[in-house]
Design a protein around this nucleic acid. Sequence first.
DNA 1: ATAAAAACTTTACGCGCGTTAATTTTGTAG
DNA 2: CTACAAAATTAACGCGCGTAAAGTTTTTAT
Lengths: 341, 341
Amino acid sequence: MTKIKNMEEFAALSGISRPTVSKYFHDPDSVRPSTRARIEEALERFDYRPNIYAVNQNRKLTKNIGIVVPYLADPFFAEIARYLEQSCIAAGYRPFLFSSHGEQKLENEILDGLQSLKPAGVLFAPLGRISDKSAIEKFCASVPTVLFDSNLDGLGAAFIGSDNFSFVSQTVEYMTRTGEPPSFFEMRTPANPNANKRRKAYIEVMERLGFEPHVIKIEGTGWAFEEIGRLGTLKVLDERKLRTDSVLCSNDRLAIGFLAACFEQGIRVGRKDDCALRVASNDDHPFAKFTCPSLTTAAHDYDNVAARSVETLFELIENGGKLENRTETLFPARLVLRESA
Amino acid sequence: MTKIKNMEEFAALSGISRPTVSKYFHDPDSVRPSTRARIEEALERFDYRPNIYAVNQNRKLTKNIGIVVPYLADPFFAEIARYLEQSCIAAGYRPFLFSSHGEQKLENEILDGLQSLKPAGVLFAPLGRISDKSAIEKFCASVPTVLFDSNLDGLGAAFIGSDNFSFVSQTVEYMTRTGEPPSFFEMRTPANPNANKRRKAYIEVMERLGFEPHVIKIEGTGWAFEEIGRLGTLKVLDERKLRTDSVLCSNDRLAIGFLAACFEQGIRVGRKDDCALRVASNDDHPFAKFTCPSLTTAAHDYDNVAARSVETLFELIENGGKLENRTETLFPARLVLRESA
DNA sequence: ATAAAAACTTTACGCGCGTTAATTTTGTAG
DNA sequence: CTACAAAATTAACGCGCGTAAAGTTTTTAT
């Protein structure tokens, strides 16, 4: 079991010329079946693999794909990243995962570092409001990029995300149908552009149904949504700002904080008769099933968003990095009824 | 603003010879301040950076560091990964983050792929029980590796983690001091070696305090601990297996499921008089503050574990990949009193 | 000012592999 | 068996940069 240093050596040991071996690694089907068999036989005996640095230096396009999410400590992004990773691997690519950790500076540094990785493409969920648009625009000009989750107008070759209107309309309609119309609970300055769309959808749906919208805006910045939601709720409860017994939170992480605050204050939440409040939300966070009470929420179509994102990226890559026109694909939500509303 | 293709071109534009520029990129302090200034000035005007593939091909050691965690959808690991990443960057390295997603096959594939990245070192939190020890051993033989969180006997150049005895002794002592001695709630076949140490510590501490240990083992495999905990708790409650009003969960994610089940069953948990049960746990999961009631738990010393891990890795790297003897460093827990116990 | 040391320039080779052009071998069809 | 296309081989160059050797310039010390 001697260690093989390079392709030259491996080619010699396998009895095939180096250019042919090189061809094999580029596409195993491009060589005659008999020679392919000989190479793979040698591969079993000697455990050689091409030096990726030499390969990537000489190929025009690497097989690397960058995956960038805004906040990995949010299990939602961890889950979607997992799906994206696996799809890339299945397609013969090498995914590299990065988290902006909620900071613009880090997001920019990641994009910067990504450029020198010369990735074939990038799947990018930007921070949103605090993203450095011009930096991202520059980046997208030099690297084939598909945006997901958070849309930034005109940036990237395509956007794939969830249809916020579908989320809110389902939750609002459900709540109005089964009880009082909900107030909308959100952060005053939401980090994510989806939040704005959800508020607008809420107002639109409420008006269409003939109810007066009521938006409750709480203070707080950053990505510690649960704590922001909790503190905001305590304040709202203290000031008796709730007009009805129904609340729709902009997202599940705020709702987790909302429920924690209600529990602290001894307020029973749920759809049962002895409950004082109904709370629903949007996202179907992995923990939404384990809140007390479990959270009624509108679920992202994780699988489709992820699948379409990679599909689109591969299409983009095969197209040489350009698509005729930027598309925006939105997947509808699925209402998940649990105990909280 | 012409685009610079290579170091040759950049060197010409900056008026410095290529070898000197190369030296600069390796270590800016290795050149005369005046030439350094000239290079950096040119750097501002032209935005050139060395091709990392060419660099890594020719340098013996890359500046890459691999970070491997068992399950990124667990915010605990996301948080620690964040700290590790930042430390690596601060030290001038390039971190690459990977998650095994709870699967041995993926863990092996990650290690495999990591080898061809030729990293200077790897920070590795293995899956634990289901890890492929022999594959890991092989990996560690060729790449400087520091294990953290989960120890595997003798593998890696060092281990840094938490002192499980410290966790359990603090929670057990607190619970016995303020109420009935707790039962210990855990999975029958825990994925993580820390679980075994916690059970042993529980038994030891209970006996030392003169109480009879009582371990409740629930069924379930995989990494969906919350749901396993929830279902296990429903069963335990149904079969009335609790001997006292106190429960110590092996980890927070199980506890989250435990509390959800109690809530479903209308069982009040907490240290107040009107509560039927007290529940404590270990880890201080990022969501432990938002359970209902909030969870009393023993907190990891995140910062120190992460800081010492990277410290040790850098030491290992500077030492050429070998340390005289394998060290195991354990940091004690900090008891966090909340409402559940 | 002079000598020695330090830093820089020039020249050149090597890393491992992609890739091309010219040539030879192999496989298939008539 | 001949003819011809497909596939493999040989030879050679290039990618961008690390690095070493030899010579030149600049800095520092005396």
